[in-house]
Amino acid sequence: MSEHSPRIRRYQLFKDGERSLFLPECISIAFYMRCSHEEIVQAVWRAVEVYRHAVGPQDLGWYADDEGEWQELDDNGWEFNRRKVLERVGGTICLAESAEEVAGHEVRYHGRQFDHPHFPPGPEATSSIAFYLPTEYLEEYGLSLCVVVRALDSD
């Protein structure tokens, strides 16, 4: 077995011969839950906090606001997202390491309130949360990722 994870990377070449990493690989840990937002909201927010603590607050520096525009994730932004998840009928958040780069540390949550007219229930209706980790995180911290996954899955 290889000591390192596979590298699947896409580079952008510039006219002057320089290249820039365009699309690095990452690992996504996603949970699809046949649960209404109100049933899981506390556990979801705890999982977001566990992830942020595990990777470090500096690795989640941006969030998408209600209009989908990227904003810096400072203390006010963190509080905005906390209220968005905990106090709304349904919740959608996107927290990311960078507003400009693809892949890296990221959290995406989409919570559906099944008994609300804006979220009609159907056989495929789910709430979901996904946590993204760059493969460099795995290479640097190794099995500590298991601790993160165990903490996320415990709720």
Results as ranks from 00 to 15, higher is better:
residue 67 E to N: 15
residue 67 E to T: 07
residue 67 E to S: 15
residue 68 G to R: 13
residue 68 G to D: 06
residue 68 G to V: 03
residue 68 G to P: 01
residue 68 G to T: 00
residue 68 G to E: 07
residue 69 E to C: 09
residue 69 E to K: 14
residue 69 E to G: 04
residue 69 E to M: 10
residue 70 W to V: 03
residue 70 W to F: 13
residue 70 W to P: 00
residue 70 W to K: 06
residue 71 Q to E: 04
residue 71 Q to D: 01
residue 72 E to V: 02
residue 72 E to R: 08
residue 72 E to K: 06
residue 73 L to R: 08
residue 73 L to V: 03
residue 73 L to G: 03
residue 73 L to S: 12
residue 74 D to G: 10
residue 75 D to H: 12
residue 75 D to A: 02
residue 75 D to M: 05
residue 75 D to C: 06
residue 75 D to W: 09
residue 76 N to Q: 07
residue 76 N to L: 10
residue 77 G to A: 03
residue 78 W to R: 09
residue 79 E to A: 09
residue 79 E to D: 04
residue 79 E to I: 13
residue 79 E to R: 14
residue 80 F to L: 14
residue 81 N to S: 10
residue 82 R to D: 00
residue 82 R to M: 07
residue 82 R to C: 05
residue 83 R to N: 01
residue 83 R to G: 00
residue 83 R to V: 00
residue 83 R to D: 01
residue 84 K to V: 06
residue 84 K to Q: 14
residue 85 V to N: 01
residue 85 V to C: 11
residue 85 V to Y: 09
residue 85 V to T: 08
residue 86 L to F: 08
residue 86 L to D: 01
residue 87 E to A: 03
residue 87 E to H: 12
residue 87 E to F: 06
residue 88 R to A: 08
residue 88 R to S: 11
residue 88 R to L: 15
residue 88 R to F: 15
residue 88 R to N: 14
residue 89 V to W: 02
residue 90 G to Y: 05
residue 92 T to V: 15
residue 93 I to L: 15
residue 93 I to F: 13
residue 93 I to C: 08
residue 93 I to M: 15
residue 94 C to N: 10
residue 94 C to D: 04
residue 94 C to P: 00
residue 95 L to P: 00
residue 96 A to I: 02
residue 97 E to V: 03
residue 97 E to I: 02
residue 97 E to M: 12
residue 98 S to V: 02
residue 98 S to P: 00
residue 99 A to H: 05
